[in-house]
């Protein structure tokens, strides 16, 4: 009786299936329960440590030392004080990270797009080429690093050996700038372009073939079709790719660490490398945490700008 008189929503809330309400098989807390495993992991391994990291950054922190003096914002002040020990390596690291992002992201966004458009056509051996393009991505950075250390060796390397056949003088890959950056960006593009290509391919397959048909009936050229159908159709994919690629490039570590060892000088020592040295080798976790928050803030800003620039503009 009570069930019948109760409003449908209340019935649904207790998981009832009677009355005038629709058939609902869950209690109010069911969605939370379903999210719980993820939330627990997120809180335990992402949110928790991130908040703890702020706490660490306010201290002179070494987890093995019992004395971890609270120093307020001193670590952050030091980062912006040119005369401090950590300011210079950190900002040099940020500069190196910035150069790598600016240098690698355009290639990592545009080259996979071109390859994806090619691989989206019908031709013999298409699956084979798709697999080949993706193959380097499954290699670990340790493998890629060792591989390119040999390939780019100025004296013994295959790259200089090949260029030498055409009379190109020996290039100091890895030991001179800008060649060190060109080498690192080149290896990164080779290594990771497969991932972006696959995402583009998925996006391309979402675009209805009818649109291309209609366009070609109207006499649109291939370039016009690309600009007016493919690119707008990939807008959301582009936002995703640019955002993830910027973040991935900003986290560059292994390439410099293994191939150039941060050199020549400290020119390819990225921000992450500086933090690793500071926090995990020199055990100055307070300053390292402060550095990582400054970097995270910069990346958040860049991501927001990226979203603003690429968001869908509604017709007025």
């Amino acid at each position: 009786m009570a069930t019948v008189l109760a409003p449908p929503r209340a019935a649904a809330d207790v998981g009832g299936v009677s009355g005038g309400g629709k058939l609902r098989l869950h209690a109010w807390w069911t969605p939370y329960l379903l999210c719980a495993p993820y939330l627990v992991l997120l809180l335990a391994f992402v949110v928790g440590p991130a908040i703890f990291g702020i706490w660490i950054s306010l201290h002179d922190w070494d987890f093995m030392l019992p004395r971890k003096p609270f120093i307020g914002l001193q670590n952050y002040k030091d980062l912006f004080d040119p005369s401090s020990v950590i300011a210079r390596p950190f900002w040099h690291g940020m500069r190196a990270t910035g150069i790598f992002v600016v240098g690698s992201v355009p290639f990592l966004v545009l080259i996979p797009l071109g390859i994806a458009v090619l691989l989206n056509r019908k031709f013999r051996g298409r699956t084979f080429f798709r697999a080949i393009i993706f193959a380097p991505f499954v290699l670990g950075i340790a493998v890629v690093g060792v591989l390119f250390t040999y390939l780019l060796d100025p004296q013994f390397g295959l790259v200089n050996g090949f260029l030498g056949l055409f009379g190109v003088p020996q290039i100091g890959w890895l030991t001179t700038q800008p060649w060190a950056w060109i080498g690192l960006i080149g290896m990164t593009v080779w290594w990771t372009l497969g991932f972006n290509t696959v995402i583009y391919l998925a996006g391309l397959q979402e675009i209805p073939a009818e649109q291309y048909e209609a366009a070609s009936l109207d006499g649109a050229t291939a370039l016009q079709q690309f600009l007016h159908i493919t690119v707008p159709g990939l807008r959301n994919v582009l936002v995703f790719i640019i955002t993830t690629t910027v973040l991935a490039s900003a986290n560059m570590f292994g390439q410099s660490y293994l191939v150039t060892k941060g050199g020549p000088g400290d020119s390819t020592r990225t921000a992450i490398m500086v933090m690793t040295q500071e926090g995990l080798r020199d055990f100055k976790m307070g300053t390292a945490s402060a550095m990582s928050y400054v970097l995270a803030l910069c990346l958040a800003l860049i991501s927001i700008i990226n979203f603003m620039l690429l968001r869908e503009r509604r017709a007025k």
């Binding site: 780019l152 060796d153 100025p154 004296q155 013994f156 390397g157 890959w173 890895l174 030991t175 060892k261």
Partner: peptide, 13 residues
């Protein structure tokens, strides 16, 4: 020594 010897090239050479 060559000008831009790579790291570890003393051993390799």
């Amino acid at each position: 020594s060559p000008k831009n010897a790579g790291s570890g090239s003393d051993f390799v050479s």
